[in-house]
């Protein structure tokens, strides 16, 4: 366990290696926050509710979704590069489980992002924007669990896309597709309740809504009570299925490397 924590710390150090890059990350996070804030202010200029969602709830949803979206990515990209350039061979010679190692790296990166992007955005949102924070401890707890589940679902999914590098020549194309699918179907752009019915039905059968939409809906009060626990159940389902899939695909990939030489 300790070695994985050290690996995470190593990644944190790497991320601070370029200080200009680091602060640019903070600046761009804050900028994006301001842009969507003023955009939704403008949308609500002539109406008080959209589909029964008022401005405050909407802003809360959008801002929290944005904060959470920063975490649903993963290290799939790095894994794909490792596989492509053969560095994965070195990794296979180390006394650690490569999946756990990649997750450790991912956690390191996310801790840095939390400090560099999320906390500044959260502070600005808290002090300068009209966002309603949940009052009951139960909601906060539910949101915490749900957010963690959502983050891991996103991480597993990203890992899966990364492993696809074995079988596809153009990893970049697959990644762009993945990014746009996630942004749209996870509900990071707009709440899924605003989708037309047929699209919403499709979305409910996809894993993406479990990444952002479900936890953020719990936070902003769009989902509460029994529905919230149902949402957690759905997340649990995706969490377990995706992890099993990750393990399976990875073992196939390892076979591919060790038998065909990559």
């Amino acid at each position: 366990m300790r070695k994985y924590w050290q690996i995470a710390k190593g990644r944190m150090q790497e991320n601070t290696a370029y200080s200009a890059w680091y602060w640019a990350g903070t600046a761009s996070a804050v900028m994006r926050l301001l842009i969507i804030y003023f955009f939704w202010q403008a949308v609500y200029a002539n109406q008080t509710t959209i589909q029964n969602i008022n401005l405050e709830t909407m802003l809360t949803y959008i801002v929290i979704a944005m904060l959470l979206q920063g975490f649903v990515g993963g290290v799939g990209n790095e894994l794909a590069e490792n596989i492509k350039d053969g560095q994965v061979a070195i990794e296979l010679m180390r006394p650690y489980d490569m999946i756990f190692k990649m997750f450790a790296v991912d956690i390191g990166g996310k801790i840095m992002y939390l400090i560099q992007g999320t906390i500044p955005m959260l502070l600005i949102a808290y002090f300068f924007m009209d966002i309603s924070f949940p009052k009951s401890p139960e909601t906060i707890l539910l949101f915490g669990v749900s957010a963690l589940a959502g983050i891991w679902i996103g991480t597993f999914f990203d890992f899966l896309v990364g492993v696809l590098a074995f079988w596809t020549v153009n990893v970049w194309g697959v990644r762009v597709l993945k990014e746009s699918l996630i942004t749209f179907f996870s509900g990071a752009l707009v709440p899924i309740t605003l989708f037309p019915d047929w699209l919403r039905t499709i979305t409910e059968f996809l894993p993406f809504q479990a990444m952002v939409y479900l936890p953020v809906s719990i936070f902003s009060g769009l989902i509460s009570g029994t529905e919230a626990y149902m949402a957690l159940g759905v997340q649990l389902f995706w969490l377990v299925s995706l992890y099993v899939l990750v393990r399976f695909i990875w073992s196939q990939a390892i076979k591919q490397i060790t038998i065909f030489g990559g």
């Binding site: 061979a89 296979l92 076979k255 038998i259 030489g261």
Partner: peptide
């Protein structure tokens, strides 16, 4: 590579 276990 076979000695290191990278290749089967």
């Amino acid at each position: 590579k076979m000695l290191t276990g990278i290749l089967t």
